[in-house]
């Protein structure tokens, strides 16, 4: 799987990258604002893991644009924002999964697998609903 990780803390990005690389994923890292947007377009990842509080760019806008650009991409947000309203907003903008900081990086793969499974299930149930309506 192609994974892009966007986070302002370079050390944390590298740590997450190491965790995900061990599972035979192709991982790209970005911790500078401009780089994030350009990497997203050029790399076209299957999964985007991102913070909301990003340097130089607006994280909410970034998530929204990513969703518009790649409707089938999985977006996982890792953030220290604890406000319910903001979390709700993140999901409305197109995020599939939210992990609050501090988090266990060794569990990142499990989070991704769970999110993929949930997305698959929701797609299947949506398809069933659609067919039954017809």
């Amino acid at each position: 799987m192609k994974i892009l990780i966007c986070e302002s803390n370079p050390l944390l990005v590298q740590l997450m990258g190491k965790e995900l690389m061990s599972e035979q994923n192709e991982v790209h890292l970005a911790w500078v604002g401009e780089e994030m947007a350009s990497q997203l377009t050029s790399f076209a990842p299957d999964i985007l893991i991102t913070e909301v509080l990003l340097p130089q760019i607006n994280g909410f806008e970034f998530i929204h644009n990513a969703r518009l650009q790649f409707p089938n991409m999985m977006i996982i947000v890792i953030s220290s924002l604890i406000s319910n309203r903001l979390t709700e907003l993140i999901f409305r903008l197109g995020a599939d999964e939210y992990i609050s900081k501090p988090f266990d990086p060794t569990q990142l793969n499990n989070h991704i697998q769970r999110a993929i499974l949930r997305k698959k299930n929701s797609l299947i149930s949506n398809a069933i609903d659609y067919v039954t309506k017809i």
């Binding site: 050390l11 944390l12 501090p102 266990d104 060794t106 569990q107």
Partner: peptide
């Protein structure tokens, strides 16, 4: 500085 900045963001075995 670097160790603390990372420690603040993670939990678990690391």
């Amino acid at each position: 500085e670097e160790i603390i900045s990372l420690r603040k963001q993670i939990t678990g075995s690391q």
